[in-house]
Computed example of a mutant assay.
Amino acid sequence: MTKHMTGLHHVTAISGPPQANVDFFTKLMDQRLVKKTVNFDDPGTYHLYYGNRTADPGTILTFFPFVGAAPGRAGSGTASAYGYSIGASVLDHWAEEVRAKGARVSDPVERFGQSVVTVTDPDGAAVELIAEPGDHGPAEGGFHSTTLWLDDIGPTQRLLVDHMGYEEVGHEASGKGERLRLQAPGDARGTIVDLYREDGAARARQGAGSIHHVAFRALDDADQLDWRDRMIAAGMQVTPVIDRQYFNAIYFREPGGVLFEIATDPPGFTRDEPLESLGQSLKLPKKYEGMRNRIEQALPRIDT
């Protein structure tokens, strides 16, 4: 039996100035700011993490908020959307409340028998709310899915099905494209990956409002190393393990060009601050702690 992924660990995106990003996700989308740290490669830029109240894998959305970022563009060769699970009984009410607070909210559409509403974030990115049984909000439900926009679905489909244990569970065609739904076995959050293709689509452009990478879950270090061996055997060019403070990570480009990460569940976000005060203080990687005063002076102020 093919080993299968558990589901999504996190999604990382790029935004413009951080204050608008924090306001949107904490005040409109009811996410908790669970970690305020800096970009490992650019300590003059925040790395902000949002999630549910207990910062569980499968609920984590992170941003690099570059103050001067040019607008990005969704298109082929990127993860183009992420979707939160929301209770069907509260979707309409939730959408109306968010619209009343000034966000742009689409009318519902049906996708694979589920109602989908899209909320546009301050940088123009699509935040999908996908109805499932229950009365939970998006923070409690965590991720439902992510969408990969590809020129050719086939190679990515084969990687996910043959080597990562996903199963084909649906296909929908439209006049200009198609969407193939894959799902990992089990009842974890974020088990669905949609592969989307559109005739004549332009290539994606990275910038504010674009997704940087999609991260899948490894249960621990040993599981991650096993996945690394499996991805190398599948022909992927995989990085060594990299310590990201709250998880260990490996990265590779899947055949359609989307950056994939496999991240460990431990040690988690309570490694350097207690659960009740997550996200309240600026946390720095050890290599930057000696530069704290300079970094704090360079970072824009955020009102949380």
Results as ranks from 00 to 15, higher is better:
Thr118Ile: 08
Asp123Thr: 12
Val161Ala: 02
Trp149Thr: 10
Thr59Tyr: 06
Phe260Gln: 09
Ala188Asp: 15
Gln183Thr: 14
Ala70Val: 15
Val105Tyr: 08
Gly83Leu: 09
Arg197Glu: 12
Gly142Trp: 01
Ser15Pro: 03
Pro266Met: 11
Glu97Gly: 08
Ile302Ser: 07
Ala100Thr: 09
Phe216Ile: 13
Met5His: 06
Pro255Thr: 07
Gly44Asn: 11
Pro122Ile: 01
Ile232Pro: 08
Gly177Leu: 11
Glu254Thr: 08
Gln206Lys: 06
Gly51Ile: 04
Gln183Tyr: 05
Ala69Cys: 12
Ile14Phe: 09
Phe252Thr: 10
Gln157Asn: 07
Ala298Trp: 06
Thr2Ala: 09
Ala126Asn: 12
Gly257Phe: 04
Asp187Ala: 15
Pro138His: 02
Tyr166Lys: 05
Asp220Ser: 08
Ala55Gly: 09
Gln157Cys: 03
Gly16Leu: 10
Tyr288Leu: 11
Val109Arg: 15
Arg271Val: 04
Gly200Val: 11
Thr45His: 00
Val90Arg: 08
Ala131Thr: 12
Ala249Asp: 12
Ser106Gly: 12
Met231His: 01
Gly141Ala: 06
Arg111Val: 08
Ser76Val: 15
Ile130Met: 14
Gly137Met: 02
Asp265Cys: 10
Glu276Thr: 14
His4Ser: 15
Glu140Pro: 00
Leu182Gln: 10
Ala74Arg: 14
Val161Leu: 00
Ile295Ala: 07
Phe260Ser: 04
Arg99Glu: 13
Gly134Val: 04
His163Met: 03
Gln224Lys: 04
His47Thr: 11
Val98Gln: 03
Thr264Met: 10
Gly87Ser: 04
Ser145Gly: 06
Gly102Asp: 11
Val161Pro: 07
Thr191Gly: 07
Ala81Ile: 04
Ala222Leu: 08
Pro266Cys: 11
Phe24Asn: 08
Ala218Leu: 01
Asn248Arg: 15
Ala233Tyr: 01
Ala131Glu: 10
Asp221Ala: 14
Asp243Gly: 13
Leu28Met: 12
Gly290Glu: 12
Glu296Asn: 04
Val116Gln: 02
Asp303Leu: 12
Asp123Trp: 06
Gly290Asn: 12
Phe216Cys: 07
Pro267Cys: 01
Val258Trp: 05
Pro138Ser: 01
Asp162Ile: 00
Arg244Gln: 14
Asn39Gln: 03
Arg197His: 14
Leu282Asp: 13
Val22Cys: 08
Asp162Val: 01
Leu284Val: 13
Ser145Ile: 10
Arg99Val: 07
Pro43Gly: 07
Asp92Ala: 15
Ala139Val: 00
Leu299Ala: 08
Gly170Tyr: 05
Val67Asp: 15
Ile232Cys: 02
Leu282Cys: 13
